[in-house]
């Protein structure tokens, strides 16, 4: 087997591989890095795309925009369910899920007892 079975040599091996891959990635990025280009006002306006101009003063993307594509595009349905159906912040909405879990436990107990009463 390629990867040694004991955890220490396995971890050393995997660490070396990861180090190698990181180095490779770094070199690739350095080589492919584009030359710094000046940005004109027009290009800046096109970049804005409806955002408030104040975001230009920020030197980096805010963390709330970090996973925009995941939250609003790829898993849109899942997140709508999670936020609007489940984590609404209202105790009454939580209670449905909590009682469902209690009822499952009790129902299983009743089923198990019912089987033993029948047999």
């Amino acid at each position: 087997m390629l990867i040694a079975s004991d955890p220490i040599s396995a971890s050393i091996l995997i660490s070396l591989v990861m180090l190698y891959l990181t180095l490779l990635l770094y070199i690739v990025i350095r080589v492919l890095k584009p030359k710094h280009s000046e940005s004109s006002d027009e290009s800046r306006e096109m970049y804005l795309g409806g955002e408030h101009p104040s975001i230009l003063s920020k030197p980096h993307v805010l963390q709330s925009g970090l996973y925009w594509a995941i939250v609003f595009r790829d898993f849109k349905k899942a997140y709508r369910g999670l936020v609007e159906k489940m984590h609404t912040g209202r105790v009454i909405d939580w209670a449905y899920y909590m009682t469902a879990w209690l009822l499952i436990l009790l129902l299983l107990a009743i089923i198990a007892l019912g089987i033993s009463a029948l047999v």
């Binding site: 984590h87 912040g89 209202r90 009454i92």
Partner: peptide, 10 residues
């Protein structure tokens, strides 16, 4: 009314 006490959500 607990339905209106929901500042913490998401």
């Amino acid at each position: 009314d607990v339905r209106r006490i929901a500042k913490l959500k998401g």
